[in-house]
Amino acid sequence: MVSIVRRMRKLRALLAVRLGPGAAILPPEVTRIHMDFARAVEDGHWGPRKFWRNCLPRLKYHNPAVVMTVNRTEDQLGPAVMTVHFTNTAAAKSTEPEISSTTTKQISTGPVPESKAGPITVKTETINMKHRVDSEILDQLLKLTKAKVVQPTPEETREIRDIEEQNVKSARDAALMQAENKKRRREEEILRQARGSMDTN
């Protein structure tokens, strides 16, 4: 296995999952978020993909019980839509989230059948994601659901600052080493050529 220190450094990516764009707590009425978009980025499907990659993990971290599914189609010219399922306030308090089980597992990430959807969906809202960048999609979603954005605690801000400092330092070191390696390689190359010409003579 890789050394512990290196693995732990990698694990600091966790901080990025807790904080940043998309770190928000959705109200209990939201039961499901479903995204539909194409596999490739052409024709305005770039933003949805970025949203899925960048913002959705944070949303999922802060709302583990909300089901979030992504369905990527081959239809490049088709729509890119996000569907948000709401339930009413009373149902949100009484019904518990549906349990996934090994016996009746859901095979695809497509829309789930009504019977499996947990609390009854009272209304659904859609957000058009086509030709929108990820931040725009996030703004629309936050406005629609009235979600509460998570702010970093002082300790977390300190950690973020530490990481940034370290990144700056490592970038500097990397540049230094790159120059050094380049120099070394050039010298080796010159030596090799000199030796090569000697051999041929």
Partner: peptide
């Protein structure tokens, strides 16, 4: 598991 489920969001469960 909470972190892993966040990392795997939107992936096929299978």
């Amino acid at each position: 598991m909470r972190y892993i489920r966040a990392f795997e969001v939107g992936q096929k469960p299978t």
